[in-house]
Design a protein around this nucleic acid. Structure first.
Ligand SMILES: [Zn+2]
Ligand SMILES: [Zn+2]
Ligand SMILES: [Zn+2]
Ligand SMILES: [Zn+2]
Lengths: 135, 135
DNA sequence: GCGTTTTTGACAATCGTTCTCATTTTCAGA
DNA sequence: TCTGAAAATGAGAACGATTGTCAAAAACGC
């Protein structure tokens, strides 16, 4: 969740801008979307830097990364702790869900097959009530 | 699992070649890898066609598609029925796993939030026994 | 066979992401 | 505050997987 290495990370205007934006915006957004939002706010941050910063935040576990089946990766600041997402295919509405049973199941299955250092990805997709109604 | 539409699908040498290859090869492979394998076998199939055929097979549910965190999508003919994969991060060794409890949990969670037409993706990653030993 | 319809495939185009590298910024000392 | 080594930035090029284009080739009901 925090910086693991020994090398010093420096505070820059750009990193603050990205972090601040992520803390104020709702839901998942692509790197390019976030870049555009920063531009609209008058913050001048290069696209490359947005990518690099998001990468670093993701590596540090400070943000969530989701890779929907047919698109680019999406980023989101989200609540602490391990959890998964229920995403509407149509409108993108997202609900965070926790599933302790799933976590232990995944670990147990991996362990039974001799795997160590286990992690997993899990996303649930569907059509939300609103989108199902308006059709 | 089978062709749903009413339009006729034609039998071509290329589609047979891809299907045959998938039925004989082990594990997950990218479209480009499969294309290269076909070339090595002397089968002349365009890369575009390989992509299209894999796409169709995936849409029909006849093959499995996996999108590992940092790479291209991988394809694999696999056993019938819904299941997930336990993949070694180092050597790519793959184990198919079934988790009825997870399935019903996902459906239940989605339902509780008013979502319909639910699907999900779940992959477990880890280091297999062999790879953990040789290190 | 014939003709219509689908499929193919070489190539261009797209698009998200990463690389390059010269310039700018940070920040721990002095 | 000043300095300089190290880190960070960003414009643009490069990359790599995938998709689009469209004329030529194959499939198949008749
Ligand atoms: Zn989990
Ligand atoms: Zn499978
Ligand atoms: Zn392994
Ligand atoms: Zn499942």
């Amino acid at each position: 969740m925090t910086t693991p290495q020994g090398t010093a990370a420096r505070n820059t205007r750009q990193r603050s801008a990205v972090a601040t934006l992520l803390s104020q915006v709702e839901g998942f957004h692509s790197a390019q979307e976030l870049h555009a939002m920063l531009r609209d706010r008058g913050e001048r941050v290069g696209l490359t830097t947005v990518y690099r910063t998001l990468q670093a935040l993701a590596d540090a576990g400070d943000i969530d990364v989701m890779r929907p089946p047919g698109g680019e990766q999406l980023f989101r600041r989200c609540s602490d702790g391990h959890h998964h997402h229920l995403v509407c295919r149509t409108c993108g509405r997202t609900v965070e869900v926790a599933g302790p049973a799933v976590e232990s199941w995944a670990d147990r299955v991996a362990e039974q097959h001799g795997f160590v250092d286990v992690s997993h990805t899990l996303e649930i997709f569907g059509t939300c009530r609103e989108c199902a109604a308006g059709r």
